[in-house]
C-alpha cells in the first residue's frame, strides 16, 4: 500500500517496547507491515501505514500494543 497513503501522524497505535517479548505475532497479523521484529523486540516501522484495525492489539500475548480508533 505504498502508493495509497492516508493522513500522516493520526494513528493512535502505541507499543510498549518494555513489555514486548518479541513473539512476532503483530508482524504476522498486521495487514500493512507496520511492525518489524529486530533484536527480539517489535518496533513500529511505519505508523502512518496503520489503519487501526486492531489485529495486533487483539493478538498481542502481553498486551503491549494499544490502538484506540475513533468513530470513523
Amino acid at each position: 500500500m505504498k502508493d495509497l497513503r492516508y493522513l500522516p501522524d493520526v494513528s493512535t497505535i502505541k507499543l510498549n517496547t518494555e513489555a514486548c517479548i518479541g513473539c512476532g505475532t503483530c508482524e504476522l497479523v498486521c495487514p500493512h507491515g507496520v511492525f518489524q521484529i529486530a533484536d527480539k523486540k517489535a518496533g513500529i516501522v511505519d505508523s502512518d501505514g496503520c489503519m487501526e484495525c486492531g489485529a495486533c492489539a487483539m493478538n498481542c500475548p502481553v498486551e503491549a500494543i494499544s490502538v484506540s480508533p475513533g468513530v470513523g
Binding site: 493522513l7 495487514p31 501505514g49
Partner: peptide
C-alpha cells in the same frame, strides 16, 4: 468512500 477502503484509519477519517 473512506468507509470502503482498507487503509484509512478511523482516527484519520474523524480528523478529516
Amino acid at each position: 468512500f473512506t468507509g470502503a477502503t482498507p487503509f484509512t484509519s478511523p482516527t484519520g477519517v474523524e480528523a478529516e
